[in-house]
């Protein structure tokens, strides 16, 4: 029962994060939500008995992927500020 509740919270939040990341117009917001999504995903996979994958996702999501995307997001945000248009 606790586990089911646990699962439900995990999934609900995961989906919320995904929706939020996908619907964010502001690039940095989207990227940070995406990073959060990655962390959460690692959590979910850890729960699903896939620690190998969770390790990988954590290392990538929090490390390289996040940094790469943040750099891009910063550029996009600056461009948005300059042009006022969409990134």
């Amino acid at each position: 029962m606790t586990l089911l509740l646990f699962d439900l919270v995990l999934i609900a939040t995961l989906l919320t994060l995904a929706v939020a990341a996908l619907t964010s117009v502001e690039p940095r917001r989207a990227v940070m939500l995406f990073i959060a999504f990655g962390l959460w995903l690692a959590l979910v996979w850890a729960r699903l008995g896939a620690p190998d994958v969770a390790l990988a996702e954590a290392a990538i999501g929090a490390g390289l992927g996040g940094a790469l995307m943040l750099a891009a997001a910063r550029r996009a945000a600056r461009r948005r500020q300059r042009t006022g248009g969409e990134g």
Binding site: A18, A21, L22, P27, A30, V31, F34, F37, G38, L41, V44, W45, L48, G49, A50, V53, G65, M69, A72, A73, A76, E86, G87
Partner: peptide
Amino acid sequence: RPLLRKLIAINIMGSGVFHLLIALAE
């Protein structure tokens, strides 16, 4: 349209597939 959003989208889509696969492994 924006590249970053497309990339996030495709990554989330991929994560979905990965997630499905991991669920199948359970």
